[in-house]
Design a protein around this nucleic acid. Structure first.
Lengths: 186, 186
DNA sequence: TCTTTTACTGGACAAATGTCCTAAAATGAC
DNA sequence: GTCATTTTAGGACATTTGTCCAGTAAAAGA
């Protein structure tokens, strides 16, 4: 994750070596859960290789996909990480996945170590906010069909790599309806 | 807005006087627009008295309410403020409103002035993120009817103070449908 | 207070979307 | 390669939600 931080903030060699000393590594198998709902999320993971999805379960027992994360992206239940309350999401590996991990204690050490890490914490939170805002806008402004079309136009990766059943709930529709939309679009 | 900051972070008298020197004041009349879409949002406002709403316009020309803000709350197009890109939202006063204003330059001065302001910037961004996340979850997990019921249970203020037409699009439904839901709930 | 405008309700119908189900296609295990 | 399992497509029908509209209630302006 180092180079992602470097691209956002100007770090000294010392600051980066501090990061190095705090990161740990893990691999997870396809299907495995990294976090289950009702746990407090105490770590932020960075994907070296693989795909993760986050989902919750509604009152009928259906799994609703909240988001996906691909290579070189971060994943966590940020809400739970921030509030230290139980997560509503489960985080699952969609493929075998290699991770770099920054846990709460490590992050707090970084934050205490100085201005630069404070600032990057704020900037990354801002970026997460902006992404979430875009998604919120797409739910308020667009229909399921339009969200699917946007995804085809701007995020081909999702269409190629994610099983349709997961895409459907991510788009806020049923698989049956997604199938209808796909037929109409062709 | 001072006391809100004080409640989150332990500030020195000097740090707070710096804030005092940077805040400006404004009053707006009911109906007035503070920000229109396609402007870059360069200030964060804090509501001393009154109510604001943020809305965008969809492809049919309908106004879709994005959020409301009440006394002692902040409002901005945070996404535009962060990215410096044009806002998609309009911000409008629903009543005559008294504001305290922190503009981009003032905020940057605070951030440059030290650790404490950096940190509060991150913490407030985190809180905004958590709020937005809750709203996103409610759109993915719940139906319009359920969102209305949640609002009745947990945010009576919205029901009492906001015209139904605005509440409807905030809940992601039409006024016609909200009227149906209200009839059923009683 | 009276008038004009705006907001809310609800009927009738239409469109969008969900439910349930079966068959075909794709994938994974051996 | 074969068999079992999972995923996807789509028919038939039900439900939800939207559209259009008119009547009434409420609010704003003179």
């Amino acid at each position: 994750m180092k180079f992602v931080f470097q691209s956002i903030q100007d770090f000294s060699a010392y600051e980066l070596s501090l990061l190095d000393s705090l990161i740990t590594f893990r691999t997870v198998k396809k299907g495995e859960l990294l976090l289950t709902e009702n746990q407090v999320c105490n770590e932020i993971v960075f994907i070296e290789k693989g795909i993760l999805r986050s989902f919750f379960v509604n009152h009928k027992g259906d799994e609703i996909t909240n988001c996906f994360a691909f290579e070189n992206e971060f994943m966590a239940s940020f809400a739970s990480f921030i509030t230290k309350e139980k997560a509503e999401e489960n985080i699952q590996a969609l493929t075998d996945t290699k991770l770099q991990i920054l846990d709460r204690k490590a992050l707090e050490k970084l934050y205490q170590s100085g201005f630069n890490w404070q600032e990057i914490g704020r900037k990354l939170t801002e970026l997460e906010f902006v992404n979430l805002h875009k998604r919120m806008v797409s739910f308020q402004k667009l229909s399921g069909t339009q969200r699917y079309e946007e995804l085809c136009k701007n995020h081909q990766k999702y269409i190629q790599l994610i099983p349709l059943q997961y895409l459907a709930s991510y788009l806020g529709i049923t698989p049956r309806h997604l199938s209808r939309i796909r037929k109409a679009v062709v």
